[in-house]
Design a protein around this nucleic acid. Structure first.
Lengths: 402, 402
DNA sequence: AAAATTAATTTCAGAGTGAAATAATTGAGC
DNA sequence: GCTCAATTATTTCACTCTGAAATTAATTTT
C-alpha cells in the first residue's frame, strides 16, 4: 500500500526507505556504499533500512564484488517479485490483467472477454473476480502488491478514476473504477487512458528510459499520442491532451472525421490514406493497384498501398503526402514540447520506408537544429506492453517523492 | 538562502517550516488552528515553528478574530517585506531590477542602461553593482533575500544559468550569469527567458492564480509563448519550448522569417500583417488606406491597419486572415496541452476587436467542447510585470517541495 | 460565578537521524 | 604468516524533531 497519513519522523523514514528501494531498483546490483554515494542518506540509516528490507524479503544480498583492497562490499538487489503491482488493460471487449514486478517480469497473467457483460455492476464484479483469482493463483502476499494500474480505451477521468466511455458499443458508462476497487480491496488504484499508459510504459521501461520528455505517437486507423513532460504524464485540465491527430496543418484542407478541416489524421491515418487513394483511382480508368484489386476481387487496404508504392504513382502520391503532413505535425509538436525522444508506433510504420521517410522529413522540417537533435524510435509490437504501462502508473505514484 | 544539504530531522523541520510559510502566504490572515486544519502538521509543531518565525520577524501576529465562543484565536500574517527576492529583467539595452516581497510589493527598483557595456566582464559587474546598491539602499537584511530571479530576452540555458545571446547587436555571448552571482553573493540564482518568466508571473500572481496549466502567448512583432504545465514551466530538453509562432498551420503557405512556410507568425505577427497588406495594396491603384498614407506621407503600421478595418477591404481581409490563422494555431495548442487558461498579450491585441475575434474563432475551431471550455484573458500593460515574473522563479524553487 | 467552549502551549516519550568511533574484511608487502 | 593500509559495514551515542495527551489560557454562555 502506498503511504498515506504517515506523519513526522515516520514519514521521513518512509521517504528514505522508498528512496533506497528506488536507488537499488535503478542501479542494481549496488552496495551500501553506492547508495551512500548516490543519495543524501547517511551510512547508519542505510544499514538500518537495508537490514529491515532484507528481513521483509524485499531486498536480497547476492555475492561479493571484485575490489582492489579492503573489505569487500556486498551486492544488493531487489528480490524478484518482491514488490509488484497489478497492471490491467481494458480494450473494447477484452480485459487482460497481469501481476508485474519492478523489473517488468510478468509473474502471472489472465485474459477475459466481457462480451456478455451488460451492466456496470457486472463489469466491476468481473474485474474484482479477476484480481482475486490472480492474487490467489500467484501466491503473492497481498501486502507486496503496492497498487493497481489500469489502462483503458476511451475517455478516462484520471483524478476521479472514472471510466467514462471505454466502448462505444456498450451502454456501460461513468464507471467509478478507482473508488470501487479501493473500497473492495484497500489497494491504491489508478486509471488512465491507453495512450497515456503506453507513453508512461515507454518512459518507465521502454525507449524512454533515461529521458524525461517523451512523445509517444500512435498512427493506425486513427492517430493519437501520449506525452510525458518532465517524467509525468501531460494531463492538462481534462486529461484530453495530445490530440495530435486533430492538429490542423492545412488550413482549408481535407475534411476530417471530426468535422474539421486539414487535420493530420485526415491525411496520415491508414483510414485516411485508404480514402484518399480510393478517391484518386475512382477518377481514373486504370492504374496498377486498381487493376490488381479488380483482378483479385480484393479490398483495398493500407498495406497493399505500401506494396504498390514504386509501381503506382497514385500510391506514391498519397503516401508521400502522408509523410509530409505527418512530419509537419511532428515538427509542430516538437516546437511546442521540445521532447528528447519521439516513439512512433502503429500500423502506419509497419513498412520501414514510411518510418524512415517521416523521420527524414521531420528533421528537415523542424524549426531549429536544437529541437531537431532528437531521438526517434519505432515501437514494434511487444507483448504485455499495455499492462506494463498500466503498472507504471502505480510505480510512478509510489516513487513520486524520490 | 534556499535549503541545501540539510539532512535528517532538520530537513523535516525545514519542510514543515516552508509549508507553514506557504500556507500563511496563501491564506493570510490565518490562525494556528487554520494551519493545523489545512496541513498535515500537528499543533505543537505549528506552535513551535510559528514562535520561531515570529522571533525571526518573518511572521507577525495581528489582531483577534470574531468567534462565538472559546479562546479567541490570533491572526497570523507574513510581515511585509520579510521574505523577498530580487527580480531582474534584461531586455536588449536595459536592465531593471527590483526587490519584491511575497505579496509582489515592489520594495525598491532601479534601472540602468547597458549601452556602454562592451564586454561580458563589464556586463556582469554592472549587474553585481546594481544588486549591491539595491540591497544597500533598501536596508533589507540580506538573509531575508531568498534568491535572485532573472528574465532575459534571447536564448537562455536554464539548467546551467547561461545567457547565450540576449542581444543580437552586442557581441556578448554565453554569459555564466548564475554561476557568477552565486559565487559573488552566495544567493541562489535562476535565469530564464522572458516568455517563461512572464508565464510564471502570470501563474504566480496574475490571471493564472489558482490554475495549474497555463499558456501565455505574446503576439507582437514576433510571436512567442510561455507554457506552464502542472505549475511548472515547460522546458523540454533545451528550454526551447512554446515555439508557437513557428507552428505550421498552412502547408505550402506564406514564407516566414524562419525560412519555412505557413507559420502562424507569417500571418499573425504585426510585422507579418504589415507585410501582407503592403503586398496587397501595392497591386492596386487605390484603396482608402493607401490614399491615406500617400496623403499624410506616413508609414504603414499595424495600428493604422486596425483603424481602417471597416473602411478598407484589404485591411479587413488581412486582419480576418490573421485571426483565423491564430485561432487555428491556438486550437492546435489547446489540443496538445489542454490548458485551463490562455493569457494573450502583445501589440496585436491593443485593439479589443482583434482579441474578441480570436477568442470567438478559437472556440468555434476547437476539437472538443471539453477542451474549448477554457478561460481567455487579455494581459494589459502592467508595470514591473517582468521583474515579478523573474522573482517568481525564486519563489517557485523555494516552495517546490510543499 | 460556574460551565462550556475553543485556542494555544507544555509535557513527555518515542521515532529517527547522523557524526564519529569501531568492527570487519581483504590485499599487499615483506 | 604477520602487519599495515584500505575499504566497507555496523554500533554507539547524543541530538533533533515530532505528535498524543494533558494542561493552560482566554472567552462566551448560562
Amino acid at each position: 500500500m502506498i503511504n498515506k497519513n504517515i506523519k513526522g519522523t515516520s514519514a521521513l523514514r518512509q521517504k528514505n526507505r522508498i528512496q533506497i528501494i528506488d536507488y537499488i531498483r535503478k542501479n542494481a546490483p549496488v552496495t551500501r556504499i553506492d547508495i551512500f554515494n548516490g543519495t543524501n542518506i547517511s551510512r547508519p540509516t542505510i544499514t538500518r533500512i537495508v537490514k529491515q528490507l532484507v528481513e521483509e524479503k524485499i531486498v536480497q544480498e547476492s555475492g561479493m564484488v571484485e575490489t582492489h583492497a579492503g573489505r569487500k562490499p556486498i551486492y544488493l538487489k531487489l528480490r524478484k517479485s518482491a514488490l509488484c503491482c497489478m497492471g490491467m488493460n481494458i480494450y473494447r471487449n477484452n480485459i487482460r490483467a497481469s501481476i508485474i514486478d519492478l523489473d517488468k517480469n510478468i509473474l502471472i497473467s489472465k485474459k477475459v472477454s466481457i462480451n456478455n457483460v451488460k451492466t456496470a455492476k457486472e463489469f466491476l464484479e468481473t474485474i474484482l473476480d479477476m484480481i482475486h483469482s490472480l492474487i490467489d493463483e500467484s501466491k503473492i502476499s497481498i501486502k507486496h502488491v503496492i497498487g493497481i494500474g489500469i489502462g483503458s480505451s476511451g475517455v478516462v477521468d484520471y483524478d476521479k478514476g472514472i471510466l467514462h466511455n471505454f466502448n462505444p458499443h456498450l451502454n456501460i458508462r461513468n464507471i467509478p473504477l478507482k473508488a470501487f476497487l479501493e473500497k473492495e480491496l484497500n489497494i491504491q488504484t489508478f486509471v488512465d487512458n491507453n495512450p497515456n499508459t503506453r507513453a508512461l510504459g515507454e518512459y518507465w521501461y521502454g525507449y524512454g528510459r533515461g529521458y524525461k520528455d517523451i512523445a509517444y505517437i500512435v498512427c493506425g486507423e486513427g492517430i493519437g499520442s501520449g506525452i510525458i513532460v518532465d517524467g509525468n504524464i501531460l494531463r492538462g485540465k481534462n486529461n484530453i491532451t495530445g490530440e495530435f491527430g486533430h492538429m490542423t496543418v492545412a488550413v482549408n484542407g481535407r475534411e476530417c472525421n471530426c468535422g474539421r478541416y486539414g487535420c493530420v489524421e485526415a491525411y496520415c491515418s491508414t483510414e485516411g490514406i485508404e480514402k484518399i487513394l480510393n478517391e484518386k483511382i475512382s477518377e481514373v480508368d486504370t492504374s496498377p493497384i486498381k487493376d490488381f484489386i479488380k483482378g483479385n476481387r480484393s479490398k483495398l487496404n493500407y498495406s497493399m498501398i505500401c506494396e504498390f508504392y514504386n509501381e503506382d504513382r497514385y500510391c506514391k502520391e498519397v503516401l508521400d503526402q502522408a509523410t509530409t503532413i505527418l512530419s509537419i505535425g511532428l515538427s509542430n509538436l516538437m516546437g511546442i514540447l521540445n521532447p528528447e525522444i519521439i516513439v512512433l508506433s502503429g500500423e502506419l510504420f509497419d513498412n520501414d520506408f514510411m518510418f524512415d521517410q517521416v523521420i527524414d522529413k521531420t528533421k528537415q522540417e523542424v524549426f531549429t537544429d536544437l529541437i531537431g537533435d532528437i531521438k526517434f524510435k519505432k515501437r514494434e509490437q511487444m507483448d504485455y506492453v499495455y499492462e506494463i504501462g498500466a503498472a507504471a502508473l502505480v510505480y510512478k505514484a509510489y516513487f513520486k517523492n524520490v
